[in-house]
Nucleic acid binder design. Structure first.
Length: 191
DNA sequence: CGCGTTTGACCAGCGC
DNA sequence: GCGCTGGTCAAACGCG
């Protein structure tokens, strides 16, 4: 469960605002900014999620996100081969997983243009979801950021995006449309 | 020709 | 111990 973090609007605005996350993806700063400046919008979105997605559904998604991080070394950076005879596990590796941030947006397209270049490396059908989950990696050399994109079964207009890791480079493209995306963004609240 | 997507197989963790 | 499930790899393929 550790190593996974969920961005959530500060329902108790005082405490959360003190610890902004690293800008692993361009929205992070905007999320916190908007959440702090108008956290009523956050609760509004939460209410909407309750209505449109029947909160239990969202909870389910969150649970999946939590338990889904099961691979000890999902971080192996392409070191081992899938057919290799189980390489000796580096003693250092335990549960040091990168922080992950999940949020959902309302969008007709799965891939929201966040200014980075992504290469799709997998797609899986996940349980309790008729839409497949897509896996992307940042194509920038040395940047090991991944993201997962999944559409909700209940509301196919909602796309859940999960970022993992931090970008080691600046944006690839201008990001003028952030505000527009943000207007449709709903940050996950696990509680 | 280079880059990105698709797709099937493989691997490892977890629950029963 | 076994089966299920999620996550990743890599070859094949498509497109600009």
């Amino acid at each position: 469960m550790d190593g996974y973090q969920i961005l959530f609007p500060p329902s108790s605005s005082s405490s959360v605002a003190a610890a902004p996350p690293p800008p692993i993806f361009p929205f992070a700063q905007y999320i916190y900014k908007s959440a702090q400046e108008s956290h009523h919008a956050g609760s509004e979105m939460m209410n909407r999620s309750n209505e449109t997605c029947s909160s239990s559904e969202v909870k389910d998604e969150l649970i999946n996100l939590h338990t889904g991080v099961s691979r000890g070394d999902g971080d192996k950076a392409g070191g081992d081969k899938k057919k290799g005879p189980l390489p000796p596990p580096p003693s250092e590796k335990k549960k040091t997983r990168k922080p992950r941030y999940a949020f959902q947006t309302r969008s007709q397209v799965d891939i929201l243009d966040d200014g980075y270049r992504w290469r799709k490396y997998g797609q899986k059908a996940v349980k309790n979801n008729k839409f497949p989950r897509s896996y992307y990696k940042c194509t920038f050399q040395g940047c090991n950021v991944k993201k997962q994109v999944q559409r909700l079964t209940k509301d196919e207009g909602v796309v859940v995006t999960t970022y993992e890791g931090m970008h080691t480079h600046s944006l690839d493209k201008p990001t003028d449309n952030f505000e527009h995306i943000l207007s449709q963004m709903h940050i996950y609240n696990p509680f």
